[in-house]
Write a protein that binds this DNA or RNA. Structure first.
Lengths: 166, 166
DNA sequence: AAGGCTGGGTCTGCTTTGCAAACTTTGCTA
DNA sequence: TAGCAAAGTTTGCAAAGCAGACCCAGCCTT
């Protein structure tokens, strides 16, 4: 085993960032969207599946749970329930992304990228593009706009930053 | 309500990207790490909390469930169980991030950013930096390296891309 | 107007998962 | 040798998930 790999998989950790989860915004995020079904539902909406029946069929989720998750997603402001009438049809509902829900795209894209890198056996058929049909990716940059590798990212606290610069 | 906001919250959706979740790498990712506890455990490890007892105390998770999630994370290759002896102490275990686990950082950072933008009531105390102690952020770019807004991102399929360019 | 169809849910009974708290094991250290 | 702590396992009960049945409002046909 070469040295770089060893450093990657088992770095000696002595720095403990002691911010309890209750104070961590990530923990609160997980409370809202950390449920597996909620993420899958958001994925459906992003891919244009906005109706109850189709989601239920796609996901194979129990109707009761789907109903519950949709309600909660609306409560949390991730989705919006929209009345929608197609010509010659009766009134239907759709669930549409709100700005808050759409803002989860970077997280979902990052997760997808990870899955493609580490779990894929065949390439993903879905693709995410910008207006010019240029594929988009998620990456980490520092304040100067320079791309950074995950291996160079460290967790610290504002207090620590202040202490260094002050 | 102004027009841009309306467009944001309820775009008319006629394009349905019909790739079932079973074929979607995102769905498989959610199978591995979509559990709320697993994400919180990864957050602990990233912040330097690598021992069973401390995690259990921080998270308030049941010991049985913590044990189960750690085992699964090791099975999935997200974490590695490392024997670890401090001088004058008996042998202990630590759970360390593998390369696969560390590769989830962009997703977790993106989620954190989202939480800071939409859920925060007070600023996060934890910060993520690069080697130069410059704070890092996650952003979406296209193939030309140009930053893209979430509002301009659309889902499509490889088939569709091929059809346009071909 | 009667009946049927469909989208969008509830309801029910059973199974699985989660939880707190007690218990176990192993290897120090006193 | 007794005691302690880290890292689990066990147990008994509570909550959540599931499949499948049921329900109801609107619209359409006859």
């Amino acid at each position: 085993m070469d040295e770089t790999k060893k450093a990657e998989t088992a770095p000696p950790v002595d720095r403990v960032i002691d911010v309890p989860p209750s104070e961590c915004s990530l923990a609160r995020a997980i409370g809202e969207i950390g449920d597996a079904w909620t993420l899958l539902i958001l994925r459906e909406v992003i891919c244009g599946v906005t109706r109850f029946e189709k989601m239920q069929e796609d996901l194979g989720i129990s109707r009761a749970v789907l109903s519950d998750r949709l309600q909660k997603s609306v409560e949390f402001g991730l989705l919006e329930k929209v009345e929608h009438r197609e010509p010659g049809q009766r009134m239907r509902h759709r669930y549409a992304l709100t700005a808050k829900g759409r803002a989860l795209l970077p997280a979902l894209l990052a997760l997808r990228q990870w899955a493609d890198d580490f779990l894929r056996d065949e390439p993903s058929r879905t693709v995410f593009c910008d207006k010019d049909m240029s594929r988009v990716t998620v990456l980490i940059t520092n304040e100067a706009g320079k791309q950074t590798s995950v291996n160079d990212v460290i967790a610290t606290t504002v207090d620590d930053i202040d202490a260094r610069s002050g």
